[in-house]
Nucleic acid binder design. Sequence first.
DNA 1: CGTTCCCTTGAGTAGTTTCAATACTTGTGG
DNA 2: CCACAAGTATTGAAACTACTCAAGGGAACG
Lengths: 242, 242
Amino acid sequence: MGRLRQALTHREAGVVEALITRTERVEDGQMLLRRGAIVEHSTILIEGFILRSVQSGEKRHILATHVPGDFVDMHAFALKRLDHDITVLGPALVGYARHEDLRIMMEQEPHLARLFWFSTLLDAAVHRTWILKMGELRVDQRIAHFFCELWAKLEMVGLAREDGFSSPLRQSDLAEITGSTPIHVNRMLRELREAGLVEFRRGRVFCRDRSRLAQFAHFDPSYLYGAGDLAVHDELSVNAIT
Amino acid sequence: MGRLRQALTHREAGVVEALITRTERVEDGQMLLRRGAIVEHSTILIEGFILRSVQSGEKRHILATHVPGDFVDMHAFALKRLDHDITVLGPALVGYARHEDLRIMMEQEPHLARLFWFSTLLDAAVHRTWILKMGELRVDQRIAHFFCELWAKLEMVGLAREDGFSSPLRQSDLAEITGSTPIHVNRMLRELREAGLVEFRRGRVFCRDRSRLAQFAHFDPSYLYGAGDLAVHDELSVNAIT
DNA sequence: CGTTCCCTTGAGTAGTTTCAATACTTGTGG
DNA sequence: CCACAAGTATTGAAACTACTCAAGGGAACG
């Protein structure tokens, strides 16, 4: 949603912010919500990182990552029940909006309601890209692709650098994101480093040649629908690509 | 959406059907919509199967499968632009509803609007399950998982048998669904057959012991949200699972 | 009765995981 | 300030899983 900010008027942004009735600082690794929980509020990430994951036996698998400004559980607003865990990565600041208030707001602000729906559709589009990439890329390319995606998302909210970004990610997190193992991730990170594509050192990602990294990862950012893009959709005046 | 039918009143079902201004018979392999296309209508599958796929170089990758009753491109109602291709598998009958009519209907029928939103959220939940399964299962298990999923979805619309189901799927389609190759799929099908788990012969799936197949595939149908489930959500009275 | 599409098999290679063991960091208490 | 503990990162070797290339087999349709 933070990425949708450009699609909001100043007034609307205020309306959204007024929904947040409570904020909370949470520490690394804390699980905000557990799969199956019934929720009566939605969570917005203000600072830090949040993961959507599922526990599968001993292993945890990360399904999606969120950056500041994102509503992380809008789907639960409609479905009421979460199908995965919501976990904080590194220290974070989160805000809560009550579903009841959201519902009232959506009735009064159809444009905002539409944007909230958009944000869940964007999540789905990101999911689809991951299904594709899990199927067609090697682990090293998946790691690179994840770096590209997170970099782009952080950039949209002004948290990226020219030559990379910082995060509290560990190698084992990358393993859970890419569906691999920490050991293999470690080897692949070495290869990426030796190939001069990207460096990962305790959460910090450095990359000199971004387009080369994107090419290696087969990364095409269009699935993230930049805020500009979205605004255009809203006006209903996009060019045919057919 | 066909799976949501139980959540619709008789009147509402009529309202939805009245939206369909045109139906069309399409033959096997035909692409209904291409990635990037701007659409002004939504497609409902009435008979047959539809695939959501992307072309990636030489290879096609299938992201989702649909059964009769499903709206296959509701996301494009909001985003206007498709991020993947919509292709027919086997002969099919489809119906079209104009976005303009949909928009008007949604304004007048908030309950229906909510159900349409639900259906896109369910798609997202299915996507998440696929990300997980692509990451944690071997190809043989992924094939089994796909069989379980399709079987369950067909069952919801009364198109399954006690001992399996029929479809126009080829082995190469299974490869594109599971992110594998036709050759490997062929071998894995042989192993599944020899293990007495499931048989696949030119699109027909036979399984004597469904629960054993589900166990092998680590299949838990809850992510499909049975229609009953959904109806309950709508009443806002689900049991906590915490 | 042959063409076409789909399915099947074998052999070799590439990618990935697992187990086992060893270093490096960072924070903490002595 | 050093030593230790805990978490994180790294390496090697062996086993497993999956892909590629190449070649054959079988069923359906005209």
